[in-house]
Design a protein around this nucleic acid. Structure first.
Lengths: 148, 148
DNA sequence: GTATTTTTGCAAATTACTTGCAAAAACATT
DNA sequence: AATGTTTTTGCAAGTAATTTGCAAAAATAC
């Protein structure tokens, strides 16, 4: 069931419901809308961008944040802090592991699939990027907490 | 004034001044204190932690943020968003490139020097970490902005 | 269909971080 | 070393993303 981008609205709706249930989340209108959007468009998007993309007044912003946090906790969605005071969110498709590059000036975000840093940097240089920096961070449960 | 290592203390002060001048920043008391701390202790630290570590009332928090931002702009310091609503700062020692792992529960932060992801993950698993995720992000100036 | 649990919307609160401004410190020049 | 200019600082108030308390509404369980 690895439909990255089901073409039909209906398929996406069904996938949303399945994914939510798999994670033990009840299937509500806002959750379907938000997750549906993230399945349909690639992002990463800020909470504000997500709200603007949804039908007007279909979701309160508090609801959007609550849903996104649940999606992150259940690993349906990944967060990144490409801009320093705003999180971005993106559907976590395990078959399309990738990373981002953001322009320090115009903030344009692009994705790439390479995963060895020297190769990545070489490719980015070839594409014309200058002044490249990267940040790699791991998140896990430490041994102490895993036992407790 | 460290009683333990006056020689090193002096060296650090001199290094601070040199680093600041190299980056075109004037040498002020707050900048010496903050950069000095980051040279002495490894971090990464939040702005609040930095303030607490400095002599009481030696720096306003606005000054701390302003200095840290200048240090980041001049690449004297690196930022990370290990916790979602708070930046952490660390001296950017080009000879000690490394990354971090934060426990999802207790928030303890550790550093490591490996830089190939499979190797890193294997090592972390060996150390007892579970449920490992990572985030790798690049920051650069894109071709368009480099021309403009 | 009804009861119970969960989620939502709204408005207010929180908090990391930023900013305007006057005083103080740093720097350049003599 | 004193002077004038520029930069930086401290303070207090402001900003903006995100969170939270609570009552009403929707989802799930029975």
């Amino acid at each position: 069931m690895s439909l990255l981008n089901p073409k039909k609205e209906q398929e996406r709706e069904a996938l949303c419901a399945t994914l939510l249930k798999e994670k033990g989340l009840s299937v509500t209108a806002p959750r379907k809308l938000i997750l549906g959007l993230l399945l349909k468009e690639h992002g990463p998007f800020s909470a504000e961008e997500i709200q603007k993309k949804l039908p007007k007044n279909s979701c309160d912003q508090a609801t959007i944040y609550r849903c996104l946090n649940q999606f992150v906790e259940t690993q349906l969605v990944n967060t990144s802090f490409l801009e320093k005071d705003m999180a971005h969110f993106e559907y976590n498709d395990p078959h399309h592991h990738h990373h981002h590059i953001i322009c320090k000036i115009c903030k344009k975000i692009e994705s790439f699939h390479e995963c060895l840093m020297e190769k990545i940097e070489t490719n980015l240089l070839r594409k014309g990027y200058k002044d490249i920096q990267h940040r790699l961070e791991f998140f896990a449960v430490c041994e102490t907490c895993a036992k407790g």
